[in-house]
């Protein structure tokens, strides 16, 4: 058993921890893994090139940039902010909590493409949450703005991750099914979905409570910053 490729993990962790540019870290890590496994550097280069070419679909989401850029130029984020600022019951925590619920339910129905950081969080959810916080607490400091935005992005992730596995035709369910079938266990996707529900409920409870407490956290930050 050749354990030397594990060196690549050490390189990766140290590189990220040291704050080096991630692209450079990836290149050094790939070369380390290849050389440690006894693969010639030219073959590592070819493997990297082939993999980059066959994973181009990962970057297709950026097709959205021109339309989002145009809408932002026309004031989309400002509109989202004023729309929510007028609702008296809206707070940053509640808005993000509602988004978490919507994201999780739609993901459970297989509609993961309804959300996402470029499609929903930057243009709509984050400005709405900021607008709600501003109408309650006055002008926000940069630090508070960043906290609200980070929570909005986190709700998008938690909702998607722990909702999608309830949908029977999602790729992770199919991967589990396929792998277990290779090991001799034939399982209906429906059974896998059912056993994803307890974790989904707990994920909503845990992250929901933290979002519920976000408003108190923001009020505390206001008291600290404006004594």
């Amino acid at each position: 058993m050749n354990l030397w490729p594990l060196l690549a993990i050490a390189v990766l962790v140290v590189g990220f921890a040291a704050g080096l540019n991630p692209l450079i870290v990836i290149l050094i890590t790939a070369l380390t893994a290849g050389v440690a496994a006894g693969i010639a550097p030219l073959h590592v280069l070819a493997a990297l090139g082939r993999a980059f070419n066959s994973t181009r679909y990962v970057s297709l989401i950026w097709l959205i940039l021109p339309v989002i850029g145009l809408l932002e130029h026309e004031g989309l984020r400002e509109r989202a902010r004023t729309l929510i600022g007028r609702m008296r019951a809206a707070t940053a925590g509640r808005i993000i909590l509602i988004y978490l619920a919507l994201r999780q339910i739609t993901a459970a129905l297989g509609l993961t493409s309804l959300g996402g950081p470029a499609q929903m969080v930057r243009p709509i959810v984050a400005p709405m949450a900021e607008g709600a916080a501003e109408s309650r607490l006055g002008t926000l400091s940069e630090r508070m703005r960043h906290v609200v935005r980070a929570y909005a992005a986190s709700a998008d992730n938690v909702g998607a991750f722990f909702g999608e596995d309830i949908f029977i035709a999602i790729s992770s369910i199919l991967l589990i099914k396929g792998f277990l079938a290779q090991s001799g266990y034939h399982i209906a996707p429906f059974r896998l979905s059912v056993w994803a529900i307890p974790t989904a409920l707990l994920a909503f409870a845990i992250h929901g409570v933290r979002l519920w407490r976000l408003d108190a956290k923001l009020r505390r930050m206001v008291r600290e910053e404006r004594p």
């Binding site: 058993m1 050749n2 354990l3 490729p5 594990l6 690549a8 993990i9 991630p22 692209l23 990836i26 890590t29 790939a30 893994a33 290849g34 440690a36 496994a37 693969i39 590592v44 493997a47 990297l48 082939r50 993999a51 980059f52 994973t55 181009r56 990962v58 970057s59 950026w62």
Partner: peptide, 23 residues
Amino acid sequence: LVLPQLLASLGAVFALAGVGTAV
């Protein structure tokens, strides 16, 4: 912008080098 795609590519190199088997 290319970070996600590059990390996916690194995963392919990891598989080739047998990092997963070693873990």
